[in-house]
Design a protein around this nucleic acid. Structure first.
Lengths: 193, 193, 193, 193
DNA sequence: TATGAATGAGACTTCATTCAT
DNA sequence: AATGAATGAAGTCTCATTCAT
């Protein structure tokens, strides 16, 4: 039994080490030999842990989604106001920007290999999205779907624009603006009730 | 005299026809033979017009950027209020969603092949971004950089989220929300003056 | 009729201009496009004058042999002694070393493309060799076949060794030695009679 | 553990088997597939041992030079007079004529691919030439550079002329002539002292 | 005659994958 | 479990040659 745990543990370690390679070069440009070298194992060993290059990549992708779900919740500790929470999230994003860029590029690669319908049906992805959603609900203090999506789209957009265009947008600036607008909007909305 | 061909004209035609192929399969998965077949020419002809696969792809990317700059401005015709203009833009995006998805995937591919600094220095890209910016300035009726970026990031985000997550966000819903928030925000801002 | 002369004349001009290309790069590394460019014509034109790349090369080779036959005889003008004639020949070779190197490399290429028996049966080559032979006979003042061959092999050898090994051998030194040895040898031979 | 192979040993075996192919067809006309087939391996294996076709060819060339250096010295065993030694060398050459032809054609090919200066600086080649030189010094019993070169050029020349012209020269005939001339010349030279 | 766009067979090379050790 | 030599299909690209103009 312990052997099996080790095997799986080691498999995940290998996956983690592939992340940068795939993100910076793209699936098509990375070779199994290159991966093996980077990981310090032989190609044979690689095939002992993963049945194929594609399987390796998909497992990496799944692994990514699994992890993300877990890591974000600590961000909201010690935040009391809407503004603090929004700032905390954008700060966190800014500090891990490089990771988000890479995750994003890997996701793009992943989408070109899959049937669209299969992707949207994927269990892990769905769970990941839901968990992100709940996180935003908690952060904004509202579960109005439109508002939650609004914030999620904005955050995603800032990352993507920065990846493609460079420093033309600033995290803190957008955080403040979002806070301001949301505050105004939610005030108005509460007045109507 | 040789066969008469407008070399540059024909080159661009070929590029246009490659768009879908690269977008749906990804740079690495598309082969020159496949492209040739799709375009109805021989591989030799392909290499007569493009020195390499990569050059072909980069030219496609440049061509895309060149075109986008031109096409958007008609969208704002017959719009009088902020709400109308925002709606018009999101409608336009919704109707061309498939194109934006593809353009987006190609851009991702492109970014994995290039040196980051070179990309950000690229002339065409810079111009393209500036032109998009001006467009948004015109649409929103404000040139407050933070606000302009806000709208651009949101729009980008909606596209990306829909590409990756499916129908979880709706264009018109986000258009309305943006309109509402902007209106409130701009009112407030004008009160301060 | 005059047209035909022009055609043939032009053909030979084209051949001449190919010489360096084939000699320096080798048959296999030279492309028809490259030749066309070098000659300042189109590939189409090239094929108007030569049915194929190989035919072009073979014609070049024949042309070379035809010319060599003609050019050497002036070398012996104003020479009176054996020593003068040997010196004149080696001087001439030294001054045209580059040409001999090239001719030699082309010949090597030619030999790898042909059936050995066909080459040795080739009319032009046979004539060329005979003419060289006669030239040496005249130069040495003897028609002893062994001696004539001896001189021819030595001369060939000096060129080849210099091509492959560089300046390790000197033309004038070998000329003097050949003169000395021949003189001694021919003296001895005449004593026997 | 992987299959056990003496990498370098096997590499040299593969090289040896390529010799005929390159010599008879020429570098440009030989394909990697053809080589692989001839050697009984896959093209992949070929590239496992050699990074490129050119590298393979150059290694073959180096290998040739390395070997030649070693093989000649046995020829002079049991020879006592100058005549015997000259005869032994020319006999040896005659018996291995085919090999010399091939080595020679490969050398020609090699020279067309390289920068002249680099060739002349090549370490292996220099050593090979020196070793040939010493061999001739030993054979002739003199180290007069002019005389040594004379003999080397003659030997080279006989091979080349036979390759290009066929049986017009005979090894034994030239051996006798060289012996005669050298004897006369060296006698004369010793009288002067 | 002359041009050069077009062709497509085939060259070199790579790389995911297998398998003997 | 681990290794890396071996495979061969397939990719990018070249180039002699053809042919419409």
């Amino acid at each position: 039994m312990p052997k099996i745990v080790d095997h799986d543990q080691y498999r995940k370690e290998l996956l983690t080490k592939c992340f940068d390679l795939f993100a910076t070069q793209g699936y098509g440009a990375v070779t199994m030999r290159q991966i093996a070298k980077e990981l310090g194992v032989s190609t044979g060993t690689l095939y002992h842990y993963f049945p194929s290059k594609q399987a390796l990549f998909w497992q990496l992708y799944d692994e990514l989604n699994e992890r993300d779900t877990a890591s974000m919740n600590a961000v909201l500790n010690n935040t009391h106001t809407l503004e603090e929470r929004i700032t905390a999230i954008f700060d966190y994003t800014a500090q891990n920007e490089d990771y988000f860029f890479k995750q994003f590029l890997i996701t793009s690669d992943f989408y070109q290999q899959q049937d669209r319908t299969e992707i949207l049906a994927n269990e892990t992805l769905r769970r990941n999205y839901e968990s992100n959603r709940e996180f935003v609900v908690k952060a904004l203090g509202t579960d109005d779907p439109a508002v939650v999506n609004f914030a999620m789209c904005l955050a995603t957009g800032v990352i993507v624009v920065r990846l493609f265009e460079g420093d033309v947008v600033a995290y803190d600036q957008q955080a403040q603006l979002l806070n301001k607008m949301l505050t105004l909007y939610l005030q108005e909305a509460s007045l109507k009730d």
